[in-house]
């Protein structure tokens, strides 16, 4: 049996949660004061995911960089692999909000999309 300690992000209380696990299965969650803590802890220890936001270099645009995000959340342990793909990518103006800039970031099956418009400069 193993124990994992987490801080709940549901509200400013920041309850210190303790999750008891056995072979990857959650046995119990304690330390939470509401149901949100329980839900958060179970997800966080079995399948933690995050949205990654960054910027990608743009050619011929009115800005040097276009802001971007993963279209869905990705596994937490893939954050740096996704960042590596983002840092190697270059796109060309014009760019529209929602345009796909990387189709399948770091093999996660999740796309990286633009979060702002970039105009082309002639």
């Amino acid at each position: 049996m193993e124990q994992r300690h987490l801080t709940c992000i549901g509200c400013p209380m920041g309850c210190q949660l303790t999750v008891e696990m056995d072979k990857g299965e959650v046995l119990s969650v304690s330390g939470n004061t509401c149901k949100r803590g329980d839900i958060y802890a179970r997800k966080e220890v079995t399948n933690p995911t995050r949205i990654v936001t960054s910027t990608i270099a743009v050619k011929e645009g009115d800005k040097e960089r276009v802001s971007c995000k993963t279209a869905n959340d990705i596994p937490k342990d893939k954050i740096f692999a996704v960042m590596q793909d983002i840092n190697h990518a270059v796109c060309k103006a014009p760019v529209k909000i929602g345009d796909i800039l990387i189709e399948n970031a770091a093999g996660t099956g999740v796309a990286v999309i633009a979060t702002r418009d970039i105009r082309k400069i002639s």
């Binding site: 949205i51 936001t53 802001s67 971007c68 995000k69 909000i97 979060t115 702002r116």
Partner: peptide
């Protein structure tokens, strides 16, 4: 503010700063 977490009250979805401004 290119990170996400904006707009949960206004648009009922999580947007990045540029998307919210947009």
């Amino acid at each position: 503010c290119i990170h996400n977490g904006f707009g949960l009250h206004t648009f009922k979805e999580e947007l990045t700063g540029p998307e919210y401004a947009g």
